[in-house]
């Protein structure tokens, strides 16, 4: 069926696109788990990539393939309201980002520090970036993003240095 058609394969990312790699990786990790999240991660990567460089031939080639992926996904997702209506898509990504944030925050407050909670903080911060495809973030979302990014880096460093996060 169409839903199981593989996505067009991206060429290796040019050096200029290092900043969008995290979002593309998050997209891949969600292709099966939550395709709506995967779609908007790619859309954010696309918009950001076009701002970085869409003229250099290898950048242009990469973006064309990424656009092919997005168009394929949009067809597969069909009339999913999260794709066809911004207000629904916005709510979907915001809820997902907040769910990840809450999970990591709960683990943090319980003193359970591990790789999975660090990744949840980090992914949550990336998804708040992705949320900007719908417009400016609310102040609350800006605070969550900042806190999640900081916590992920802080706990990661503590664990790396064998220290207990405070």
């Amino acid at each position: 069926s169409m839903a199981s058609d593989p996505l067009p394969v991206l060429p290796p990312a040019p050096q200029q696109f290092k900043p969008i790699q995290h979002y593309l990786r998050t997209a891949q990790e969600h292709d099966k788990r939550d395709p709506v999240v995967a779609y908007f991660c790619r859309l954010y990567a696309m918009q950001t990539g076009m701002k970085i460089d869409s003229k250099t031939p290898e950048c242009h080639k990469f973006l064309v393939k990424l656009m092919d992926q997005l168009e394929t996904m949009k067809k597969q997702l069909g009339d999913n309201e999260s794709i066809t209506q911004d207000v629904v898509g916005n709510a979907h990504i915001e809820n997902y980002a907040y769910k990840m944030f809450l999970y990591a925050d709960t683990e943090d407050r319980a003193g359970r520090f591990h790789k999975n909670m660090i990744k949840s903080f980090y992914t949550s911060s990336l998804l708040y970036d992705v949320l900007t495809v719908f417009g400016e973030l609310t102040e609350e979302n800006v605070q969550h993003r900042k806190y999640a990014k900081w916590k992920a880096a802080y706990i990661h460093n503590c664990l790396k240095n064998g220290e207990t996060p405070q």
Partner: peptide
Amino acid sequence: MGSVGASVASAEQDDLSQRLSRLRDQV
């Protein structure tokens, strides 16, 4: 040659922007 190259690049750029707009139903 240079200006032909530039206009080709700009047409390609327009194409990507248009595809992005269509994707977002903003056409």
